[in-house]
Amino acid sequence: MSSTPPLRSDEVRGMTARQPWAACILAGKDIENRTRPWRPGCFLLHAGQSLDRSALRDPLAARATRGRELVTGAVLGLVRATGCHQDPEGAKPCTL
């Protein structure tokens, strides 16, 4: 049984991620670094208008996006955030 509360009928949340990271999230990327904390639940995943070209050299991004069209400026799917933590001030973003 999920501990994530269901969405109310009047609540729709969304998050934007630039490509290729949006495609990586849909492919199962399980760590997503954000600048502010998020509460667990479902989100519409929106691909931003711009492409993070430097991320295409990241091995995770290259593997997850191989053969996929990197759509921008659109809602791509529904994702579930299961938890959130804040990295200590000045620390490198979480990678585990």
Rank of each mutant, 00 (worst) to 15 (best):
A74Y: 09
L60T: 13
G77P: 08
G41T: 15
E11S: 00
M15S: 10
T4E: 12
A22N: 03
H85Y: 12
A17R: 06
G77L: 07
A64P: 15
R80Y: 00
W21T: 12
G77C: 12
G14E: 11
V79K: 01
P59D: 10
D30K: 11
G14I: 04
A17D: 00
W21Y: 13
W38M: 15
M1W: 00
A64S: 15
A61R: 03
R18Y: 08
G90Q: 10
A64Y: 15
D30M: 07
A27F: 06
T35W: 14
S54D: 14
L44G: 02
T4N: 15
G67I: 02
V71G: 00
T72P: 05
C84P: 10
W38V: 12
A74G: 15
R57F: 02
D52S: 11
N33E: 10
M1V: 03
W38G: 04
T65D: 07
S54K: 10
T4L: 15
S9I: 01
P93H: 01
L44C: 05
L96F: 01
R80H: 07
P59M: 12
A47Q: 08
L7F: 04
F43K: 01
G14A: 14
G67W: 01
S9M: 00
R63W: 09
Q86W: 06
A81C: 01
I31Q: 11
T95F: 07
A22V: 03
T72S: 10
P88A: 14
S50A: 10
L45Y: 02
P93E: 01
R63E: 14
S2V: 13
P5K: 14
R39E: 04
P37K: 12
L51M: 15
E89Y: 05
T4C: 15
F43G: 01
L96G: 07
G67A: 06
